[in-house]
Each structure stands twice: as C-alpha cells, then as structure tokens.
C-alpha cells in the first residue's frame, strides 16, 4: 500500500485524537517556563551574567582595598578579564533572544543553534584556559616583586621546603597538574552540557544537506 493511498486517513487520524484545549488552557501555558535547550542556555547565560557582575565587583573591591600591591594588581587584572567575558556573554544572550523571536527555515534554525552553542563552548573554554597561564605568571611575578611579606605564606614555605629547587619543582608540578586537570575538566563539562545535543542537531543538518 502506497502512502498516497492512505494519505487522507493518516492525516485525519493525526489531527483528530487529542484533547482539545480551551483558550484559558492556552493562556495558562503562556505563563509556564520553557524546557528547550535554548531556553536552558538563556537561563544559564543569565546566571553567568549575574555571577560575572558579582565577581567583577568583588575583584575590583579586592583590587582597590587589598593591603598587598601584588593582590591589588592580580585582582584588578582578573576584574578586567571578567569584564571582557561579561561583554561576550551579554552579546551571546542577545543573539539567543533574537533567535527565539524569529522563525527561520528548519536548516537555518538548526545551524544558528549549533553556531550559538559552539561559540559559547569555544569562548568559555578559551576564557578558562587563558586564566591559567595569566594566573601563574601573575602569581610568580607579583609574588617576587611584592614589597611586603605575607608571614603566613613564608611560614608555610619554610615548613614545607628546605631548598629553593624544591619550591621550583613543587611550582612546576602544581602548574602542570592544575593545567591538565582544568583542561580536561572544562572539556568534559562542556561536552556534558551540550555535546550530545550538538551531535543530534548536526546529524539533522547533515541529513538535510544530503540528497
């Protein structure tokens, strides 16, 4: 039996057996929260924006009010970096909101969603990875140049290390472990968040492209 011979029957069946909703039921639905991935992305971007603002305020406060010059520079630089990241998140949120308000053809819609999520993943990863060397470099430079001594830190170092080379080895091992750990954790985290979803959307795009 061909599809065309059953066309009207299937079409009829598809559209008939359902619970009809009243206008009031539909009005209630408009007040509910979206469960789509794009909706979730929007929510997570909004949370990131709030967190970023809190971090910026905190970093600048520590930067200006911190007793040590090294900490002042350290937190000020991180405050500026977070400010740049904040700008990027706001841009991405605007693009996501724009996407919700437009009705694109299926293929363009899929591509736009994939682009937004991939851009979010890429920048989030770059930002996290860029923080690691900046963090290390600043820690060393500023630690060496700090005019004031931090007694707690000096005591800790004295108890733990007896020679300068031990401090260097410890520093290098610590940096490598932290960098590798942060690299794999960020990759895993982003993959867990949107990896499977992106794969499924790409599969749909590939299918649309194939003749």
């Amino acid at each position: 039996m061909e599809l065309d011979e059953l066309k009207s029957l299937i079409n009829h069946k598809l559209s008939t057996d359902h619970t009809t909703r009243s206008a009031e039921d539909i009005a209630v639905l408009l007040t509910k929260k979206t469960g789509s991935v794009i909706g979730k992305l929007k929510r997570s971007l909004r949370i990131e924006i709030i967190s970023c603002i809190v971090v910026i305020v905190l970093f600048f406060y520590l930067g200006f009010a911190g007793g040590y010059r090294s900490l002042q520079i350290y937190f000020s630089v991180f405050g500026v970096l977070s400010f740049i990241f904040l700008g990027f998140i706001i841009y991405l949120l605007r693009r996501t909101i724009q996407l919700s308000a437009t009705t694109l053809p299926v293929k363009s819609n899929l591509q736009t969603i994939v682009n937004i999520i991939e851009e979010f993943n890429r920048r989030y990863f770059q930002f996290n990875m860029a923080l690691i060397p900046i963090c290390f470099i600043f820690s060393f430079i500023l630690g060496y140049n700090e005019p004031k001594h931090i007694p707690e830190l000096d005591n800790f170092a004295k108890n733990l290390f007896s020679a300068k080379w031990q401090v260097i080895v410890f520093g290098v091992v610590y940096m490598i472990l932290l960098s590798v750990g942060a690299y794999f954790f960020t990759k895993w985290y982003l993959r867990k968040l949107y990896g499977r979803y992106i794969d499924q959307l790409k599969e749909c795009i590939r299918e649309l492209g194939a003749e």
């Binding site: 539909i26 639905l29 979206t34 469960g35 789509s36 919700s100």
Partner: peptide, 10 residues
C-alpha cells in the same frame, strides 16, 4: 507547551 511558548515568543 513548548511549541505554544515558542510560538508566543516569535
């Protein structure tokens, strides 16, 4: 519900 919400937004 999701279609209704998306349609309303657009």
């Amino acid at each position: 519900q999701e279609i209704t919400l998306q349609a309303w937004k657009a």
